[in-house]
Amino acid sequence: MAAIAAKDEQAAPSGRKGGPLPLLALPLGWMLVFYLIPLALLLVHAFWSVDYLTIDRTFTLENIKAVFTVAPYPAVLIRTLLMAAAVTLTDIAIAFPISWWLAKKVTSHRELLLMLVVFPLWSSYLVRAFAWKTILGTNGILNSFLQTTGITSEPISAFLYSKTGMYITFCHVWLPFMILPLYTILDRLPDTLLEASGDLGGNGWKTFLRVILPLSLPGLLAGSVSVFSLTMGDYITPSLIGGSPGTELIGGIVADQFGVANNWPLGAALILPILAIVIGLLLVANRFGALGRDER
């Protein structure tokens, strides 16, 4: 990291002397000591093992193998991926209309509305997840609503302590993470472009598929990475809304290896696929310019 920072290609046009290193030394040093090194050391744990109560620091691939072969880890990993994918796609579907509306249709109070969208992001995640427990319960608001409107006759218990419940909760808690980048990118699309497509005979669908969707890809990808990553690593929602707190999703299993089962090496090994998938997504997103402009 330091070596990269030191590579001062040329002085900025403003005649700045010296490189950015004095400025970057502290933040990069911090990130190195308090993030990158701990992360690397954690991954080293994956190649160790537990001998009764202590960590045996002899190299072994047992844990890595276990992640992909020993039940229930592979099944839970796949389940988590499916859940993360479903939540991401749903959030894209929900976020598109409102982002479009905010970016292109709203004429007054747009900033206020945007702030309203963002606000739930800053109100306690724990509280919002807990609120869903109240809404989804057998005698909760959702069942009460369905019964009064005559949509169902009996309360549906499958909303709470189930995968359905977790899915609904995830879609809600991560939604602002999708709306924000999508709005940002849609806001930048010039109206003239859309008009041009219309003038050239493109109907609504064509314009959407051929023009809007490709151009909004960076925003979509940025939001998707956030939503996917957050779902992959969460253990609070499975605990409150899921049926089996520790084993619904991979995040719960990882948390339990550190907080309950006391098997750090296995926990670290279970983190490897999460890291690989999220970093893979980041690289894909980066290719499409989702992580901000590259201003070298």
Binding site: T138, Y161, S239, G243, S244, G246
Partner: peptide
Amino acid sequence: LVRKYWDLGGEVAELFMAKE
């Protein structure tokens, strides 16, 4: 068949009282 694997006693009490 299991609705919830419970962690704390208060949770069980709540599950019973909410008829879950």
